[in-house]
Design a protein around this nucleic acid. Structure first.
Lengths: 215, 215
DNA sequence: AGCGGTAAGTTACTTGCGGTAACACCAGTC
DNA sequence: GACTGGTGTTACCGCAAGTAACTTACCGCT
């Protein structure tokens, strides 16, 4: 009768309700985009607005909960690719490919995660810049940085370096993927190979063009 | 009296008015963030809403005009660094540093450009994913890709490769810069050097850590 | 059995913003 | 002097976020 040990065997009704609401919200957001109204979401869930507010506080809260779900799912896929037993190049390619395959398969989810368009009316005034940008990128960057720090020998100041690289590589993956998803200029394999080549220093190795501009 | 040749010697009054309105909007947006209301912008300009709508169509139009101004400014700075007569590594470092210095100097502008939070009520329903993401990143990616294609000898399928790299590098710069701006984990010089190192293939060269996880 | 508290749910409202319609004023121009 | 085009206004519409006040229904308690 105590609630404490109910958390393990079965969810409290409130948690279950919350899950149902999130699933309904998911359907609506994936259908209508991030500008889905709270009324629409409530209707999809078969209830009315104030209940959503009781569960999630405000629209930002609901969207944050949604984002966490999807972010966790994507991150666990990425972790699998990142931790596979293979050489570094293969792991990098597998991770890039996993990410790109995910966003290719669910572009609506992707768009929602990257451009949540949250405008919380006024973020407490102080509000550090960049703090509210897509949290998915931050989390991926941090995790990748950690993996790099664990696995790659970078000498002194390795930790700082690893974090920088983590965020940098994630950003590279993200921007290239975003562009690729919009224009589809090449196959996924080509994109993966090109990005891995970039990370493998081919920019430094390549020669200047003989017919360069101005010379 | 014909308007045609007035475009060269002096702006038509409408254009000048438009500039004034844009400057007012700039002040408000930089003060209040992207959620600045049209009323607030109109008030700052000393007029009322409908005039803004006559000039810019809708809020998206105003914001697009604002973004183009700032994007052009940033891009011309970057072009200068990119075209400087120096070896490739120095040019890359100069470009990274220019970008980071810019966003460091004007974080509000940066935030506005990257997270315009445009939700055009309904983007014509069809609405290709990613098409409405930050256009600054796209433009930078395209330009960088062009520069790479012009200056670096990449062999066959060079153009495709160059565009991929352009978008990838820009994304790397952006994500790392966004994170750095929020957390300030190191100096700008360190960040620039680390990112350039990453592009120079140091990830591929580094050894595995001897005390790696699990092994 | 009946009482009281808590959670789920509702309707109906307020507030605020994007956007528009209708009207007013003031050049110049035929 | 009426006609036109640009600048400006007030007053309004629609819609979405968020809230208040009220209504059930369930569950433990004495």
């Amino acid at each position: 009768m105590d609630i404490a040990h109910r958390t393990t065997d079965r969810q409290t009704p409130a948690e279950q309700r919350r899950r149902e609401l999130l699933e309904a919200a998911d359907r609506v957001v994936l259908r209508d985009g991030p500008q889905a109204s709270m009324n629409a979401i409530a209707a999809e869930a078969g209830i009315t607005k104030p209940i959503l507010y009781r569960h999630f506080g405000d629209k930002g809260g609901l969207y944050r909960a949604l984002a966490i779900r999807h972010t966790d799912a994507l991150l666990s896929s990425l972790r699998a690719a990142l931790d596979a037993p293979a050489d570094r190049r293969r792991r990098v390619e597998a991770t890039l490919d996993t990410y790109l395959a995910s966003i290719e398969a669910m572009p609506q989810v992707y768009r929602f995660l990257m451009h949540p368009a949250e405008e919380p009316h006024q973020t407490e005034q102080g509000f550090d810049v960049g703090r509210h940008s897509a949290p998915l990128l931050r989390r991926m960057g941090e995790e990748l940085g950690q993996v790099i720090a664990e696995r790659v020998d970078l000498g002194p100041s390795a930790e700082a370096q690893a974090r920088i690289w983590g965020h940098g590589i994630v950003g590279m993956m993200h921007a290239a993927g975003d562009w690729w998803l919009g224009e589809r200029p090449c196959s996924r394999e080509e994109l993966v190979r090109s990005l891995a080549d970039l990370l493998w220093g081919r920019l430094a190795e390549a020669d200047d063009r003989p017919d360069g501009p101005g010379f």
